[in-house]
Design a protein around this nucleic acid. Structure first.
Lengths: 226, 226
DNA sequence: AGGGCGCGTCACAGTTTTATGACACAACCC
DNA sequence: GGGTTGTGTCATAAAACTGTGACGCGCCCT
């Protein structure tokens, strides 16, 4: 059975607990928060596969959380709302939600929706992408250079995927530490550098003059296709 | 739903019509041509968001069309080819294609590829500002003058970004020292001047008569676009 | 015109940042 | 248990960056 890391945001404690329990019973692993702020704070380190957001939240509402998630990520989002607020549906979908579920919801229905959204997201995102000679298959988690498959270790792969997710953008070490490792590390560390070197040694035809992962002195690293 | 203006080049009428229909059904707007010449003739006026090119074409083949498109534009390109011609893949990617799809292709798969390529192109193009000939990409931390990339050191870049953040405003040295450096430096030194000078040497076409960073005697410096 | 002052310029050595390879330890797999 | 692989840390080398201060010029004021 496919299992997903779910980020749940719901302010009503009884609803939250009930959903958490139901989803856990379906085999999902759930992390939940009562407010959008908390969720946004932790989204990078927890790296969920899908977010389920109540629309009515204290502080930042679910639609706004969705909008912000979309700015950072392709993360699929399902919005939860009380029955029959049509306006919400339009706003929610405009904010980039993948699906919309009306409360109260049967756990099995929610589970089906989650799987549908994940399947869709997967088929859209799992296609391999190519940057010149480099092919990355995010579905199969495989990397190939000039048609030859290359073995990357888990950490190396996470690092590469993180860089590739933001092509052309400079990502600093702190960000990478939080995104790829679990921010449980000291701030000053050459860890990122070391891992970048390892990835370069594998994917760069000439590691001393990298064409994919560029060093931006004083700031971080940037993945940009040749 | 996101909709794209697609330029399709395919010589086989039945395949062309089928693809056109399928893509239109996914919500895209499609313009199609049977030959590369026609496509290149019209590419400027139609301004598509993405090109889908069959590799085997009478006259100029798809790879060559791709190469020529790349000379004029950043336009994303997906190549279509018959199954299993590995050589084509390499040549195609060398010509600068963004992705490569083997015929026959499921419309949904092609659609997913299109969206993936567009998403990538979009996120790569964000966060830039231009002042006349000067282009500053804050995401990629790149600066270019008249299309030519210019290397700025970290401090130079931070200084330029700080100035650019307040276009038209005069920023004094004390402010700049605190914003760009770590206010751990002596207030009176030629530090800021020296750095401004270094930036000017790189971005000003005629450093003696600056058009971007102006000196305001007695107060500080002002960035104002020409 | 003369003086005062602010600014531009420059070279370079000390400092900071990154690359690289070695190594130790942990996790994992027979 | 013995070997293999993955990962974080460190030492060192190499490269790049930057502060400094002296000097000269030109602007501005009287």
């Amino acid at each position: 059975m496919r299992v997903a890391g779910i980020l749940l945001v719901e302010d009503d404690p009884s609803v939250r607990t009930a959903l958490e329990l139901a989803l856990a019973r379906q085999g999902h692993s759930v992390t939940s928060y009562a407010t959008g702020e908390e969720a946004l704070d932790h989204i990078r380190s927890r790296r969920p596969e899908i977010a389920i957001l109540d629309v009515m939240l204290p502080g930042i509402d679910g639609v706004e959380v969705c909008r912000r998630i979309r700015k950072l990520d392709q993360l699929p989002v399902i919005l939860l709302t009380a029955r029959g607020d049509d306006l919400d549906v339009v706003v929610g979908l405009e904010a980039g939600a993948d699906d919309y579920v009306v409360k109260p919801v049967e756990p099995r229905v929610l589970d089906a929706r989650i799987r549908a959204v994940l399947r869709r997201a997967e088929s859209a995102a799992s296609d391999r992408i190519t940057f010149g000679e480099l092919m990355i298959d995010r579905g199969a988690l495989k990397v190939a250079l000039a048609g030859k498959e290359i073995h990357l270790t888990p950490t190396e792969l996470r690092l590469l995927l993180e860089l590739v997710r933001h092509p052309g953008q400079v990502l600093n070490r702190r960000y990478l530490l939080r995104a790829v490792w679990d921010h449980t590390h000291v701030a000053d560390s050459r860890l990122v550098d070391a891992c970048v070197q390892r990835v370069r040694a594998k994917i760069e035809p000439r590691p001393a003059e990298p064409v994919f992962i560029h060093t931006v002195r004083g700031f971080g690293y940037r993945f940009s296709p040749p």
